[in-house]
Design a protein around this nucleic acid. Structure first.
Length: 909
RNA sequence: GGAGUUAUAGCUCAGUUGGCUAGAGCGCAGCAUUGACAUUGCUGAGGUCGGAGGUUCGACUCCUCCUAACUCCACCA
């Protein structure tokens, strides 16, 4: 025992402990059909990413839940995995290839080669994130690890797609999509970011009206003017048609009135460009107008632009304006027009709305047999939350969820990149078209469109259909399409494996609130649809029973941490190296309440490192003071001797109850804080300090320490396991049984703090009156403290070790130290020095202040107690409490008055 | 434009269905320290719970309005 270091150095222990856990099989979930399991599917981090604070928080929270349940003997599965993060990964690899000199990786390498490049890259970097998950101490079942592009998960994806297709829920449609000309792919609405930008706003004469626009380059073939029907300025024009002079000659235009136009915006009249604006596209659909593409997929103008054809839009804009000016059609230019432009949040490319053929999921068609009624995807998604089948913690996110689902649009599934699950759709084409197609390296679906390839037939399938020439849709599926299946595809679905039957639905989904739309909603969509069509009862079709949404971690200024601001950005791995995983975990848990953001700063982590060290030292102390670590701690209630023993056991018992309640209610911060307080303030500062010396009761000392370690283990797994190995060489703490509150350990009556306090105060008072000394200013502190003294064998002078105060000592015999007179005060075997007087004036001031406060309180409480309404309407226990408080206060007042008269008597002398 | 969240000590945050004198950590000031621990111990200062109303015997807690900050959604032709 003696060789334990004075300070706990996390780095020395953590990796070895993790290996030991993993090797022992402690993380493996064991099926036990007589018990209901506890299951978490780990939100899969990007396979090529590195651990950030969001991951660290997620891992810490989930590990707490899993370790707690595991110690309770509940079969617990935490299934880890990684995500292929399609767009992010492909763009990283493409960039790397470009750095190597391959200018256009897709065209130059072709699909097969590029994919194998990406595969290599993922393979190499996957271990990074895996090891970082281990660094956090995550006790997940690595044997069940999955990757969203695994073959069996691909099979699940295709099965999901196939069923939707068969049910007519998947359709291909011309839709306006967010096209990123840089990345050459569509971007989901969810993935857009808006950036404010200053631009010029142009006014042009267009026939009888003046129109305003920021984008003249899209206006070549505008032939429809739209005005608000209530706008009096344009009433005479409704339904009229006429020829107007425009960029490249005359255009036959007509006027439509629609309420979507804002009369206050610009001139109140506009022309529409259905191909490159969502609003215009919807208007065109409403009035059945033609939609002509103006800009191609690289951002260049098409032949409709005449002399500007082939020019990039950025370059063309001013030239078009110049031409219109020459024609006398330019009215004015507003220079400082602020507007938002949409950019892809990955890569930041400016998005150009385009009409393209894309695959969509219909969320409104009623095909799901749900609770005896044909329902749409949207309706099922609403019902699952509304009926409470899935609970969201905190509840405020219900509203946010509904505002999203109620306005849910059809889900655009296709992405024009190669890394991901390729769409399992085949097109029958002619031999000749196939030759053309091959020349273009099977690029992307928009080329199918623009090359004019004729599709003769369309089929769903994993493999190429027979008879005829078939090509597969070159696009891939939205990453979230595979993530949506995560809770059950990882358990073997579409097969109903033993694991699937036992472990699904999962218990808790724990993640940041920022991906509630991306992921949480899509998981509900996918699991209810897939599993219901398997014929499972509704309650088995949800992906999880509870969603716990943690707050996001922000920097000290409340800003999002981003790599662009390294000075405020905290890297969890650096912090782990510096302060240890346990400290990092605590700093992420304490103060983190569901759905509320939390600021993190290094001092906070350092604070928890100090706590970890405190536990280490308390244990060290215990071990140094116990001859034999194998002390029998059974039947501990019979071994509690002193009042202090009983007090700490009673408090421990209370703590266990509260911690269980808190963890079950997802109040992890509260649970951690309570254990922290108990361990540091009650066990170390109070119990250890009080019993130090000859009053150590080894069984209780050890028992309480062990219980603290168990309670703390889910929060700080490493240090607790490290200490445990000194206490118990046979079993690892990770496998120990979780503490259970024991009624026998409730000594509240014998050991209640207040009772003890009163007893000691009484004794002290009697001591004082005997010796006629003024009350010590620090007397009250005595109650919490307890100090010991010890004579060193090798020193002549008696030594007083002052743990907390100068005023108290514990000794079996009335000591005579430093010429002080010590008096036995009983109760806890305390000896009190009756000299060491204090500053009388200060004491007087202090007492008078206390007297005033107490007097005020008594007045308040008196009013309350004389209030009839209070006595009649307030709950009985509250009234009782008030009465007791009143009695206590009066007693306090008496004591204070006694002290004051004492002081006055002394100061007179 | 629509919706939501937050506002409590110098800083970061707790405060569970309204009910004992509103709490913690950090920071600050003072004191202490030879056998677990300076990654320590004790003591102290510091709050009209954003503002104004209302409901109630009683409001940090519930309701309304106002102010400020943040977030999400929509979107600017």
């Amino acid at each position: 025992m003696k060789e334990i270091e004075k300070a706990y150095e996390a780095v020395k222990y953590e990796d070895a402990i993790y290996k030991k856990w993993e090797k022992s099989g402690a993380f493996k979930a064991k099926i036990n059909k007589s018990k209901e399991p506890f299951v978490i599917s780990m939100p899969p981090p990007n396979a090529t990413g590195t651990l950030h604070l969001g991951h660290a928080t997620m891992l810490a929270l989930e590990d707490i839940m899993i370790r707690h349940k595991r110690m309770q003997g509940i079969p617990s599965l935490w299934l880890p995995g990684t995500d292929h993060a399609a767009i992010a990964t492909q763009s990283v690899v493409e960039k790397k290839l470009q750095e190597k000199g391959i200018k256009n990786p897709r065209a130059d390498l072709g699909r097969k080669k590029l994919l194998s490049e990406i595969k290599e890259f993922v393979k190499d970097s996957k271990d990074t994130i895996r090891n970082q998950i281990r660094k956090m101490g995550a006790s997940c079942d690595w044997e069940k690890e999955k990757y969203t592009l695994d073959d069996d998960l691909n099979h699940a994806v295709n099965t999901f797609f196939g069923r939707l297709y068969k049910d007519g829920l998947i359709y291909q449609g011309d839709r306006i999509v967010n096209w990123d000309p840089n990345m050459q792919t569509t971007v989901a609405d969810d993935e857009l970011e808006y950036k404010e930008e200053k631009a010029k706003f142009y006014y042009f004469k267009y026939g009888p009206v003046v129109i305003g626009t920021a984008r003249p380059e899209t206006k070549f073939s505008d032939k429809v003017i739209v005005v608000n029907p209530k706008d009096k300025r344009y009433k005479h024009l409704h339904g009229k048609e006429f020829d107007v002079e425009w960029i490249n000659g005359k255009i036959h235009a007509k006027v439509i009135a629609d309420p979507s136009v804002d009369p206050a915006m610009g001139t109140g009249s506009m022309t529409i460009t259905p191909s490159h604006s969502l609003v215009d596209f919807e208007l065109a659909g409403k009035y059945k107008l033609e939609k002509e593409q103006i800009i191609d997929f690289h951002g260049n103008l098409l032949p409709v632009a005449g002399e500007f054809s082939g020019m990039h839009i950025a370059e063309a804009r001013e030239k078009i304006v110049a031409k219109l000016k020459k024609k006398g059609l330019l009215v004015k230019i507003e220079e400082n027009y602020m507007h938002n432009i949409a950019v892809n949040y990955r890569g930041k490319g400016v998005v150009e709305p385009q009409i393209m053929k894309q695959w969509f999921v219909d969320v409104n068609k009623k095909v799901i047999d749900w609770k005896g009624k044909k329902s749409s995807i949207k309706e099922v998604m609403q019902d699952v939350i509304r009926s409470g089948m899935v609970k969201i913690v905190p509840k405020k996110f219900d509203k946010i969820y509904f505002s999203y689902v109620d306005n849910l649009r059809d889900w655009c599934l296709s992405r024009q990149i190669w890394w991901g699950h390729q769409i399992p759709i085949w097109y029958k084409i002619s031999e000749e078209d196939k030759k053309i197609w091959k020349k273009h390296s099977e690029s992307s679906s928009y080329l199918l469109q623009s090359l004019g390839i004729k599709i003769l037939d369309t089929r769903f399938g994993d493999k190429e259909p027979k008879n005829g020439v078939w090509i597969r849709d070159p696009d891939t599926l939205d990453t979230w399409f595979s993530s949506a299946l995560w809770t059950f595809s990882t358990l073997g679905w579409p097969k109903h494996t033993v694991d699937f039957k036992y472990f699904h639905p999962t218990s808790v989904l724990e993640t940041g609130y920022d991906i509630i739309f991306f992921w949480v909603a899509k998981m509900i969509l996918a699991s209810t649809y897939c599993l219901r069509s398997d014929g499972l009862p509704e309650e088995k079709c949800i992906p999880f029973k509870t969603v716990y949404l943690h707050g996001l971690i922000r920097d000290i200024n409340g800003q999002k941490m981003s790599k662009s601001k390294p000075e405020t950005c905290i890297d969890p791995l650096d912090m782990i190296a510096k302060y240890g995983t346990d400290a990092v975990r605590l700093s992420l848990i304490v103060g983190n309440t569901p759905g509320n953001d939390m600021r993190l700063y290094e001092e906070k982590i350092a604070g928890y490192r100090n706590f970890v060290n405190k536990i280490w030292n308390a244990s060290r102390f215990a071990l140094l003071n116990i001859a034999d670590a194998d002390i029998d701690t059974s039947e501990i209630h019979k071994k509690a001797k002193s009042r202090a023993d009983k007090w700490i056991l009673t408090n421990l018992n209370r703590l266990i109850k509260e911690v269980d309640k808190d963890i079950n209610n997802y109040r992890f911060s509260d649970a951690a804080t309570k254990i922290y307080d108990f361990a540091w303030l009650k066990y170390c500062d109070w119990y250890l300090e009080t019993t130090k010396g000859e009053h150590i009761n080894p069984p209780v000392l050890l028992y309480v320490l062990k219980e603290i370690l168990k309670l703390l283990h889910p929060f700080t797994p490493f240090v607790t396991e490290a200490i445990w190995s000194h206490l118990n060489s046979e079993n690892m703490l990770i496998n120990e049984a979780w503490p259970i509150a024991n009624a026998k350990l409730n000594f509240a009556k014998e050991s209640g703090e207040m009772e003890m306090v009163h007893e000691i105060i009484t004794t002290i008072r009697s001591v004082r009156s005997e010796k006629k000394v003024p009350p010590s200013q620090k007397i009250d502190a005595v109650i919490y403290a307890g100090v010991w003294t010890k004579t060193l064998e090798d020193k002549k002078e008696p030594i007083i070790r002052m743990g907390r105060l100068n005023t108290l000592s514990i000794h079996t015999e009335g000591p005579k130290i430093n010429n002080a007179v010590w008096k036995y005060v009983g109760g806890m075997d305390l000896y009190l020095p009756v000299e060491n007087l204090v500053d009388i004036e200060k004491e007087k001031e202090h007492l008078l202040k206390a007297l005033k406060i107490t007097g005020d309180k008594i007045a308040t409480i008196k009013t309350k107690l004389s209030n009839k309404n209070f006595l009649e309407k307030a709950p009985k226990d509250v009234v009782e409490k008030e009465k007791k408080a009143f009695a206590d206060l009066e007693e306090e007042l008496r004591i204070l008055n006694g002290k004051i008269s004492e002081i006055k008597a002394i100061s007179k002398k």
